[in-house]
Design a protein around this nucleic acid. Structure first.
Lengths: 234, 234
DNA sequence: CGGGCGACATGACTATGGTCAAGTGGACAT
DNA sequence: ATGTCCACTTGACCATAGTCATGTCGCCCG
């Protein structure tokens, strides 16, 4: 059963916030609300999708198991973010598995509910397309990063995304453990450690799950500089 | 103006093929048909999207320019494939640029046409979501490949995707030049050369734009084997 | 026919990042 | 307190792939 706090987070999610109130009430009313413990599975790759998922609290990761058993993290979602839209509405098998990274609360909207609302009001499609586009865009950005940046630069961007200020010094808290951050950024934990070490030159100090950035602008320069130039003199 | 051959390719595209005939006729009737020369730009990153694009013939690449000027190829489309669906319907700026890789023909469907049809028949949303899901899926697959496979393995998968037979020997023609293949697979042309050289051990011979595979199954084994094991013994 | 250009191949060198192995240090339970 | 577990760090080593330089081949153009 949903408390008001949970419903309000759901209302503000990218997926739902632009819908008219009477539709939102129907969606929230028919949704399934669940808690997951750290490590619990939400669904597995190849499973048939039957719901759209909205994270209310905590963190959830999407990942793929490669044929050789290695795990590739595709994305990590938190409060207000949703996933599975396109898959659920087509009743297709998930291309990824989902697992709770921390204790978390998730709202599941059965795709049938969404589908019947869509028939009544096509505007809802646009909401879904908007979130789906968001995912598309973030995957494209990840691809660009993997192809064009070094590990340390990807870590720099990761920190920049966490920080809310736009210049000067800043502090950020790492939202989940470093093993997962490494996975999300396409590297091994050892490499992440070394990337953090390198970022010391760019004014970043990391202690526990806390990072201090001495100058946001400097870090941004580092993240976007050409890997070829200016490193030798490190 | 569209010939019948062009219209028939459009009808068979993933985006359009599941729509009812009377809608398809409207879409094809209002589409803009254009030819592009090799190197010509279809649209630029950050430009506002106003149409959905369907490739009728030739090859089109989507790519991003990084802040440092490097180019990251996101995908390469050919006959029957469409792109820009989610972006166009939200009137958002393209996250990528598009360029003709060969001389090609492209059909542009103004998003207004799609939107008005959607209001009449919500089923159309599902078609759009289906193509969008396809793109999402292929990006996820690319991410997994980049994170979990070596260059030579990615080349092997690329060849496997081109081949239509499922075992035994096989010949494939490289669909566009090696510089672009390298970009698509996230490597430099030099590395692609070396990757092809390595694949000789896996039974692949490349001459010009023609590749001979002595045994599809063997190549598949190579593509999915664990990078860590079995390589030292070259 | 010869010159030049661009795609592609190859060699030498370097750097990024994966692997393995040995630590450190915090959290938690007994 | 003390031991154990696990995340994390660090060092040594090596494979992969980027960079730079050079060389070859095919092609277009005069």
């Amino acid at each position: 059963m949903a408390h008001e706090r949970q419903k309000s987070i759901a209302r503000n999610s990218l997926l739902i916030r632009s819908l008219p109130d009477h539709h939102v009430d129907i969606l929230l009313g028919q949704a399934v609300w669940r808690s997951y413990e750290r490590g619990e599975t939400l669904f597995l790759q190849e499973e048939k999708a039957q719901a759209i998922h909205v994270v209310i609290d905590g963190w959830v990761k999407l990942f793929r198991m490669t044929p050789t058993g290695a795990e590739a993290v595709v994305s990590v979602f938190t409060r207000g973010e949703s996933f599975g839209e396109a898959v659920a509405l087509k009743n297709m098998p998930y291309p990824v598995s989902a697992e709770a990274v921390t204790t978390c609360e998730v709202m599941h909207i059965p795709s049938s509910v969404f589908l019947s609302l869509m028939r009544r009001d096509p505007e809802i499609c646009i909401s879904i397309l908007a979130s789906t586009f968001g995912h598309l865009h973030s995957l494209v950005a990840q691809l660009e990063q993997l192809k064009a940046q070094t590990g340390a630069q990807r870590v720099a961007e990761f920190l920049l995304n966490l920080s809310d200020c736009s210049d000067g010094p800043c502090e950020v808290t790492l939202p989940y453990d470093k093993m997962l951050i490494a996975g999300r950024l396409g590297m091994k934990p050892e490499s992440l450690s070394r990337a953090f070490a390198r970022l010391k030159d760019a004014g970043v100090t990391v202690k526990r799950n806390h990072a201090e950035i001495s100058d946001i602008a400097q870090l941004r320069d580092y993240a976007e500089s050409d890997p070829a130039e200016s490193w030798s003199k490190g």
